[in-house]
Design a protein around this nucleic acid. Structure first.
Lengths: 160, 160
DNA sequence: CTACCGTCGTTGACATGTCATGCAGCCGGG
DNA sequence: CCCGGCTGCATGACATGTCAACGACGGTAG
């Protein structure tokens, strides 16, 4: 029954829905990043990396595992780790057992930065996102996001 | 009844909802941008600027009006217009009646680039977003986005 | 008129993100 | 062994985005 999908032009409603969705999510992303930066001195990218490392055994991860975990290209991660290393948030060590490899290790300073940022960050998420929505809307947002995520994953697999 | 908002920690469900929402919308944004770039040779930012200019009377707009229309900071727009001007997509002219001002004018080349990009872009929006969702989910996505947008606007006004 | 103040757009410095390329180390067929 | 291809990460060049500061202009109080 979905044979016709993609055949017809987008309706006005579909376009409007897309537009408000993409513009608002972009705005949300930017505001959260600005809050993190001004309140805790770290970027969204920093936060993401610090969080993954803090949850890893030994607070260390191979670069490629870290990249997969947060869905980044490896070159992006490499650039970002370089900047974070310069600021002392992480350090890099050679991977045991594979001389090609590099491990990113959370420093004490990085751990402290993550701790300091968590409460303000959660507070911002509540203020900007959670508190704006009814429980039903929050559930709907999650459903939409999960459906989209599955759809995008399926596209990846079908073209791989 | 919303006196307690923001007082308690985020629940696991709220955090999970936020996480899948933000990560998926970010992924979607990135993919659409990559499609636009590879299929039509322009970025999402270029598209946004070209679209606004194409709908403006005389295909020209004052820089600050354009910035407001697409919700960008002026310095961001200025940098972007500089890059677009270098590629011939727009040109800048002095504004009539205000010697401080500058107008961005859509060139024929810019108009053609927008035309060439529209069909592939709509196709990508359908493939990556619209086709993934049921009509009910699409309506829910729109409702969530509009609610969030109103919420963010209200925050702006209350702190202004 | 003139001295100020706000507006308009630009600029430079820097952070972030993408793409193509480089290079060293691993691995398997000959 | 050895060589050709693959993997893991780094790098350089460039596009994008943010922030602070600047210089020119416009409006207005005195």
């Amino acid at each position: 029954m979905s044979q016709r999908k993609g055949r017809t032009a987008l309706t006005r409603t579909e376009l409007d829905s897309w537009r408000v969705f993409v513009e608002t999510t972009e705005d949300l992303r930017t505001r959260l990043g600005a809050r993190l930066q001004s309140e805790s001195g770290i970027s969204s990218g920093d936060y993401r990396v610090l969080l993954e490392l803090s949850e890893a055994p030994g607070r260390r991860l191979r670069s490629s595992h870290l990249a997969d975990a947060i869905g980044w290209e490896r070159s992006r991660l490499s650039h970002h780790l370089g900047r974070m290393e310069k600021r002392g948030l992480i350090r890099r060590e050679a991977a045991a057992g594979d001389n090609r490899g590099a491990e990113a290790v959370l420093t004490d300073e990085g751990r402290d930065a993550l701790r300091r940022s968590s409460v303000p960050h959660f507070h911002a998420i509540r203020e900007l996102f959670v508190d704006a929505l009814t429980p039903e809307q929050l559930a709907a947002a999650r459903d939409v996001a999960e459906t989209l995520r599955d759809h995008l994953d399926k596209l990846d697999r079908s073209e791989a």
